[in-house]
Design a binder for these strands. Structure first.
Lengths: 199, 199
DNA sequence: TGTTTATATGTACTAGTCGTACATAAACGA
DNA sequence: TCGTTTATGTACGACTAGTACATATAAACA
């Protein structure tokens, strides 16, 4: 795609048009070759756009890649509440594992979190555009479960997110053990019921 | 440090000497400026050693950085068994949180896991030289607890590692929530006792 | 409608890095 | 002692992050 319509060349192009072309080119590079492939050089060449323009709009290639990704996946974010906490969490975690193990999307997400360790602008973009919102939805669901008496009171609900979704991220990022639906079931069962024998 | 003793120049140096100098230079760069600072160019200049030599011994700068790090920290790996599972885990997790939040070491570990997402040789080195061994020690401690009747039977003990240490890594890598000793206590209590109300 | 301003553009740099090729010289092993 | 191994210096080419400068045009304003 990215048909580079022959243009006169020099001078100003409509901002919206440039933005659209740049994000499209970045998305293509991202999905084809991963986060590392999204460089200002390559995006500028593919868009086509001037490298100087990219530097003005995005602080780092990582931040551009993140915005392109968010615009591409376009949310569809849902956390259903059927009243059955276990079933709802199970559905969410299975969908999450399916996403992380998708051979197209999994490496992209791992790449983002990885690159964010050396790119503060990307880390900020990832939190603002991805992780914080997902965390919020989960915590809200936990809060309703707490009100319904399905969770112990006095828990820090944020912590539960790290023990479920965080555990999945761990298997994604450090690949010592497989990330499977069975793993999702196990972490859920462990956390809800506890693993210690009654004292 | 890294006194570059004036040498005749060209020709072969003793392998052990070169290795030592290279690892020392890599360690210095690593601790001073992070994983990203460990490039073959800079290490070769600081060691001093030839870039070609580095390429022969290490597949990527990340793999060199990992070996330098392992040689530097030199283990001291312990997982005490006092018979009290909760106390032992609490001690381990508090020490782990202290390590991850250490302003010198935390960024290094995050940098390694981050860089490993784009460097298969580093990922392999990290598993072989760091994460697998720690995982094994934890699982062994869990197995003894299971034998002692402190854990439910039939658990996948590997999963527990992800719900405890993995949860900490999650807070290290995606900094949406603080990583504190209180967090360590919370994940431990949640997992051992369970968070659901009795059915 | 005409003018100004904001901004995208092409070109051309500097500096750093990866990865490799080639010939040479010193350490190592037999 | 002598041949082999291996580290060395030098020099490439390709890619990337950033930046400087002059120029042309879209967008906004009079």
């Amino acid at each position: 795609m990215t048909e580079a319509v022959a243009r006169p060349g020099r001078g100003r192009r409509p901002s919206a048009e440039v933005r659209r072309d740049v994000l499209a080119a970045a998305t293509e590079l991202l999905l084809a070759d991963g986060v590392a492939a999204v460089t200002f050089e390559r995006v500028a060449q593919a868009a086509p756009a001037s490298k100087v323009t990219l530097y003005k709009w995005w602080p780092t290639p990582g931040a551009l890649a993140a915005e392109a990704y968010f615009a591409h996946v376009e949310s569809g974010l849902r956390f259903d509440d059927s009243g059955d906490l276990t079933a709802d969490l199970r559905a969410q975690l299975h969908a999450f594992v399916a996403t992380l193990t998708d051979e197209r999307i999994g490496p992209v997400i791992a790449g983002f979190i990885g690159a964010a360790q050396a790119d503060a602008a990307l880390a900020e973009a990832w939190s603002a555009g991805y992780s914080l919102e997902r965390r919020r939805l989960a915590v809200e669901r936990f809060a309703r479960a707490e009100e319904a008496g399905q969770l112990r009171t006095g828990l820090d609900l944020e912590v539960l997110v790290d023990q479920l979704w965080g555990a999945c991220y761990h298997r994604l990022l450090v690949r010592d053990q497989p990330l499977t639906p069975a793993f999702a079931d196990a972490i859920l069962d462990n956390l809800l019921r506890g693993v210690a024998t009654a004292p």
